[in-house]
């Protein structure tokens, strides 16, 4: 039995996962909530966002994200890897910065045109 708050959207549904009963999820207002609850109890993941160094642009930082959720436990490893990254302007939204980051299958991509 696990009670959690859904973070898929800002609605914040109170979810209940019944492990005794094939991980049946209740309290979700949409199918994504059920999916989140099962993933959260087995292998929690998050989309991670941060910035990397940028030269030659309007700002000295460029925002990035993982283009898919990554395991929570790998987030700090990924932050570590981002420290070594330096981009040269211009950069465009969706441009891949690190493919398959930390072996997660997700790419680090640029989230702003600079």
């Amino acid at each position: 039995m696990a009670d959690l708050v859904c973070i898929v959207c800002p609605k914040g549904c109170r979810l209940h996962v019944d492990e005794e009963n094939g991980d049946a999820v209740t309290g979700n207002a949409c199918p994504r909530g059920a999916e989140y609850a099962r993933a959260e109890t087995r292998r929690p993941t998050r989309v991670m966002t941060s910035t990397v160094r940028l030269t030659g642009g309007r700002y000295c930082r460029c925002p990035i994200k993982t283009d898919a959720p990554v395991p929570k436990g790998k987030i700090m490893d990924i932050m570590e890897q981002l420290n070594g990254v330096e981009l040269q302007a211009p950069v465009t939204i969706g441009q891949v910065v690190i493919p398959n980051v930390a072996d997660t299958g997700a790419n680090i991509v640029v989230t702003r045109n600079l």
Partner: peptide, 25 residues
């Protein structure tokens, strides 16, 4: 939006999860 680099924007408007700069774009 330009400084809100985290995700969670656009779920209603665009049916996807965007960061602030992506939503502004």
């Amino acid at each position: 939006l330009n400084q809100c680099i985290h995700n969670g924007f656009g779920l209603h408007r665009f049916k996807e999860e965007l960061t602030g700069p992506e939503y502004a774009d």
